[in-house]
Amino acid sequence: MDDARLAERAVTTGEVKISARKAQVYYGETHAIRDVDVDILDKTVTAFIGPSGCGKSTFLRCLNRMNDTIPNCRVEGRITLDGEDIYDRSVDPVQLRARVGMVFQKPNPFPKSIYENVAYGPRIHGMARTKADLDQIVESCLRRAALWNEAKDRLDEPGTGLSGGQQQRLCIARAIATSPEVLLMDEPCSALDPIATAQVEELIDELRANFSVVIVTHSMQQAARVSQRTAFFHLGNLVEYGETGQIFTNPRDPRTESYITGRIG
């Protein structure tokens, strides 16, 4: 662990963006998430770490109601975005997902051109009046995803023809094209090689300026590198949540310490 880097990291304490209180998730009879209380800050990278099957991805998917698409999955408790209960009847999950973007574990570009992949969200949400507007959005998103230089000459080629790392950056560009307020990332680097991983991590750090980023990761080094706050999940419980530096150098819970030192997980 790179302690020196952790110590000098400036922690920006923004205001609370997403807040969960007594969140529960059930898959049929299975109680997958128990009593999770967490406050996710704006303009901050929050990492969810924990062993496989601990519920970190499940909880992540609660935040944009992607769990709604899974039959017999039930979410209880109160999860708010800017103080508004996202599981309220008046909230349209489709609109919510435009505000809370998501990047998946495996790059999943649509079988369309690079341009059309990025333009997909703005098109369905009617964000661009003219073709020029749309071009503008596509270019700026590709630039922010650090893909513009590689892709600008091949915007009409299929997105599936890019390399794995490029595909994942394309998916990030696609996700930020709807101008979300929160970006959820479910192990975004687990299918990438170290170089592509480094690029994506750098990108995440830049995205922090505009979004609240929540990243699920298996790699503790990655959590330490990119995040300001870290939540440790174990067996469906949120064990510990705090500043990344504190979690990695001075964990309060013995289970966190065991996981970080490699004894469980």
Binding site: V94, A98, F104, F110, T178
Partner: peptide, 15 residues
Amino acid sequence: VPQSLRDGSLALGAT
């Protein structure tokens, strides 16, 4: 068609 494409589209706020 892979499930990941469905998820990807739904996560962008498509119906």
